[in-house]
């Protein structure tokens, strides 16, 4: 993503990152109404609109924290499109939502959706790996104690790091191969 011209609305993204209630309240007061009306107009309920809004904001938080999401366009159309496209199931209808949308906004939405989809795909592929690989990767990312795990498995920490590299490389290779299919 081109992040040379950060939009002022990056403020909202940081508000999510640091759990700043004032900023988050502003997001709700400015943007939740349109999401609510869209979902209700499309045969949804208020509760469903709330769930979609919350899920989308949580995804923005994750992308900001782990992928340094930086907005170069206003948040409102991005947020609205993300929620709308999440709600609408038909592929054609999803595409229609992009009609007349500015290229930068379209790119941002596509980027966010792709990263979220990728993350879910990786998670599901990892679930097919050996229990040892899963435990090793989970321990790594949950900041668990790898040395303690090595001790428990009765292997040397160096060997364990090698195994972790093998699991990671294999996971990425598998995920990319499946993506191409």
């Amino acid at each position: 993503m081109d992040t040379t011209n950060l939009h002022d609305d990056q403020y909202y993204v940081y508000a999510l990152l640091v759990n700043d209630r004032t900023g988050i309240e502003e997001i709700y007061s400015r943007f939740s109404g349109k999401v609510k009306s869209f979902i209700i107009k499309n045969r949804g309920t208020v509760a469903e609109a709330a769930a979609i809004f919350k899920e989308t904001l949580t995804e923005l938080f994750l992308l900001t924290k782990y992928k340094n999401l930086e907005l170069t366009c206003p948040l409102e159309p991005v947020l609205l499109l993300l929620c709308q496209r999440k709600w609408i199931k038909s592929k054609e209808e999803k595409e229609k939502l992009f009609a007349g949308v500015n290229e930068d906004i379209k790119k941002t939405v596509a980027y966010i959706e792709e990263k979220i989809k990728d993350s879910e795909r990786y998670k599901s592929i990892l679930s097919t790996f050996t229990p040892r690989c899963k435990e090793l990767i989970e321990t790594t990312f949950s900041a668990g104690d790898l040395d303690a795990l090595a001790k428990n498995w009765k292997i040397m920490p160096d060997y364990m790091r090698g195994k972790r590299a093998e699991c990671m490389a294999s996971l990425i290779n598998t995920a990319e191969l499946l993506k191409e299919e």
Binding site: K65, Y66, K67, I116, S119, Y122, K123, S142, A175
Partner: peptide
């Protein structure tokens, strides 16, 4: 990039 993608949504934060 893939490493951070994997990390992003997998474990409780």
């Amino acid at each position: 990039d893939k490493r951070s993608t994997l990390r992003m949504n997998m474990w409780p934060d």
